[in-house]
Simulated scan of single mutants.
Amino acid sequence: MRKPLTHTQCIILTLFWALLCFLVLTSAPRIDGPLIVAILISGALVFIPITKSIKARSK
């Protein structure tokens, strides 16, 4: 098993994900269903490991 992420790593990952979502949303000509689904999936791919590492760190 990997080492849990530190607080700094969690914050940096979250900020990079938010910046990427902001760039995608502001540059998209239209906000439609596939774009929203892609953002939700990317959010799951970012936040599931973060929550797992926070839970592993608290044990």
Rank of each mutant, 00 (worst) to 15 (best):
I31T: 09
L20R: 07
D32W: 04
Q9A: 11
A56L: 12
S42G: 15
L45R: 01
I31L: 12
H7F: 13
L20C: 13
S58N: 13
K59I: 13
R57M: 02
M1Y: 13
L15E: 12
I39E: 06
L20E: 14
R57L: 09
V37E: 12
T26L: 06
F22K: 01
L23C: 05
L40P: 03
R30V: 15
P4L: 02
L40D: 05
G33H: 01
P29D: 13
H7R: 15
V37G: 04
G33F: 11
H7T: 14
S42D: 08
M1W: 08
I54H: 04
I54F: 11
L40H: 00
L15K: 06
S27A: 12
K3A: 12
I50Q: 08
I36T: 10
D32V: 10
A28K: 00
V46L: 02
V46S: 02
K55W: 08
T26D: 05
K52F: 07
I36P: 04
L35V: 08
P4Y: 03
I41C: 14
F22C: 09
F22M: 10
I12V: 15
H7D: 15
T26M: 07
T14Y: 00
I50N: 06
A18N: 11
I11V: 15
V24C: 02
D32K: 09
S42F: 02
T14W: 00
S58H: 10
L23G: 11
Q9H: 00
C21T: 10
T6K: 02
S58T: 12
L35D: 02
M1S: 14
T8S: 15
T8W: 15
L15Q: 09
K55Q: 13
L45E: 01
I54Y: 09
S53F: 06
R30C: 10
L25S: 08
L20G: 12
V24P: 00
I54K: 07
H7K: 15
K52P: 08
L45V: 04
F16G: 11
T51G: 02
L40A: 12
S27K: 03
L19Y: 01
R30W: 12
V46Q: 00
K52A: 07
L13T: 10
R2L: 07
T51R: 08
L20D: 13
K52N: 07
L5H: 04
I39W: 02
K55G: 09
I31N: 06
M1T: 13
I50C: 06
S58I: 08
A44F: 07
R30K: 14
T6A: 00
K52E: 08
L19R: 05
C10S: 14
K3M: 06
P34W: 05
T6Y: 04
P4M: 04
F47Q: 07
I50T: 05
M1R: 11
P34Q: 03
F16C: 14
L25N: 03
R2P: 03
R57D: 11
C21G: 03
T8L: 15
V46W: 00
L45C: 11
Q9C: 02
F16T: 12
P34M: 04
T14Q: 09
P34F: 04
S42P: 03
L5E: 06
F47H: 05
I54Q: 12
L20K: 08
L13C: 10
V37P: 02
C21D: 06
K55T: 12
L35Y: 03
R57S: 10
S27H: 04
R30H: 14
A18S: 14
L13S: 10
S58E: 13
I36G: 00
M1V: 12
A56P: 05
